[in-house]
Amino acid sequence: MAWQPSAGELAIETRGLTRTFPSGRAVDDLTFDVRRGEVLALLGPNGAGKTTTIRMLNGVLAPDAGTARVAGLDPVAAGDEVRRRTGVLTENAGLDERLTARENLAFAARIRGLPTGVAAERAGVLLERFGMAADADRQVTGFSTGQRKRVALARALLHDPEVLFLDEPTSGLDPAATRDVVAHIGALASEHGRTVILCTHFLGEAGKLADRMAVLHHGRLEAFGTPEDLAADLWSGLAADLDLGTTAGPDVRARIERVAGVHEVHPTVDGAALLVRDREVLPEVVAALVQAGVRVYASTPRPPTLEDVYFELEARRAAPPPAPHEGAAA
């Protein structure tokens, strides 16, 4: 990567992080940096090593090899100091069902040494913020998955951590709560400079939040960077949608293909999907069609999303290397 931050700008650094269990190697030679205030989407199929990575970064598991620094501290040597600066939302919420929502938060606050009054006020604000104020004094045992997730998220944020590790923060939430939580996570990073490591299978959500993405597979870092950078490595060209009001016929497609810089043309319901050299080609395409009397309602560049990049990586892993340009307009 071209960007080389100074050490002070980094919230997380890993160098060759490796961990093996009796069942096999969970994380293998993991090296990446995360800037302060950045949201990193940590992606990969189940068993890719995401949870093991988070546990090593938070000093819960020790690496067999390699080093890490989180908030400037070594999680192996100063695990408790690291954990004071981090907040973790585990995949299964991890609330004690026999306690109330408020008691769960109060317990975490006491362990973290928050003054009682501050903790109570903060817990009240967060439970209210995530729509759990009315249920704050109910035992967790009757809560839905979404309710548990919201309480656990409030617990993770209770001490305003510098670094947040969020594992599936929106699983089980209804659409309104999902939107709310996504907005809140985004604001934590963009407005408060908090660093967020986001593990999720909801790629649309990751795409909205993440500045960069790391894709793990069998514990190895398969790809790391912004979706744009990764897309540039995966595909040469830019996808675009052409709205013609109707499917592009053979004549129209032939006319488009004659424009210099057009790599591919595929008919769609209301026009065509193109793969072009760059965005400067699109006005040429529109001009050629207008000149031929074809009505053009819109020409929309469609940069690859995080989701496109992820699935392309998955597809390339599963299949032999594709021919040049293949799959870019998918």
Partner: peptide, 14 residues
């Protein structure tokens, strides 16, 4: 059993 162990381990306590 209650799946609370992991969240406990992520707290700052020796």
């Amino acid at each position: 059993e209650r799946k609370t162990l992991e969240s406990l381990l992520h707290l700052p306590m020796p």
